[in-house]
């Protein structure tokens, strides 16, 4: 099963890379600032959300803005990939019905494009954080690299599944958006996990897969080491979701042209 999947991807690697490159170029086409938006968008978001929350909860913004920045962008990557993948096949209808390119590359295209955007924002984060908290900088931050890989695997698994589910049930895309909206509040993104843990609702995030993905990425970004337990859970979850995604892709790959 994995062999079929990876062969399909490797055989079409040039097309895949070329499409991802185009997606990135097209994203800010005709805008004056161009690719600078990839940096300005996450920064602006963190400042707005962080500003509002530090006023609401009277926390110092220096503390909250980095936390929100390091949480919000990985979150947007995961939800954006799952959301975007629902349109991966319909958007590629021309290619799928016109050429023999493997349909399996299109959810991966969505995931890769979003992942590059996430990497831009991570680099921005480090650039700014270096000025704000130079004393917290250390080699620990390199731990965000394995974290990002785990998160990528997890999100690709989601994309591989949502792309196919949405072909069968077209009501899935709006429903999923709603679920993500709900999860956005249930996941400690714009607040610290301790806030709800202190009120005895730790279970809300303990059972939330997205929480573990976030932890292994944002903790190292903020300069601390995530608990080993979080790593184990994140790795197991990512592998499970990825495997399920590959299974779905390999099973449906021959039927996709019929379903469009």
């Amino acid at each position: 099963m994995f062999k079929i999947y990876f062969k399909g991807i490797i055989d079409n690697r040039y097309i895949l890379l070329s499409l991802v490159q185009r997606d990135l170029q097209m994203k800010y086409r005709r805008s004056k600032l161009g690719v600078a938006w990839s940096v300005l968008m996450p920064l602006g978001l963190a400042v707005i959300v962080g500003g509002v929350y530090s006023i609401l909860f009277s926390t110092p913004p220096q503390q909250l803005v980095p936390l929100i920045f390091a949480s919000l962008n990985p979150w947007l990557f995961m939800s954006g990939t799952a959301d975007g993948a629902t349109m991966a096949y319909p958007n590629a209808e021309g290619y799928i019905k016109q050429s023999t390119v493997s349909a399996m590359i299109f959810p991966l295209r969505t995931a890769m494009t979003n992942f590059v955007t996430l990497l831009y924002s991570v680099i921005t984060f480090f650039g700014i954080y270096l000025f704000m908290e130079p004393n917290r900088f250390g080699p620990v931050m390199f731990l965000c690299i394995p974290g990002l890989l785990i998160m990528f695997l997890f999100s690709l698994g989601l994309a591989n599944m949502t792309s196919v589910v949405n072909l069968h049930v077209r009501d899935f895309a709006p429903l999923q958006s709603l679920i993500f909206q709900g999860l956005f509040y249930a996941t400690p993104i714009i607040y610290d996990a301790q806030v709800i843990a202190a009120r005895g609702y730790a279970i809300v995030y303990e059972i939330n897969p997205f929480f573990y993905m976030l932890e292994v990425v944002r903790r190292p970004m903020l300069g601390s080491v995530p608990e080993l337990r979080y790593y184990l859970v994140a790795i197991v979850l990512a592998l499970a979701v990825f495997t399920a995604g590959v299974y779905v892709q390999v099973r449906t790959r021959k039927k996709i042209a019929y379903m469009l």
Binding site: I15, R22, G94, Q98, S99, T100
Partner: peptide, 20 residues
């Protein structure tokens, strides 16, 4: 179909060639 409408002719030649 199978064209990237926003891209120019050269890019489409390239992409179509890859697809083939």
């Amino acid at each position: 179909t199978g064209f990237e409408m926003e891209q120019n002719g050269w890019d489409n030649i390239y992409l179509r060639g890859l697809m083939l």
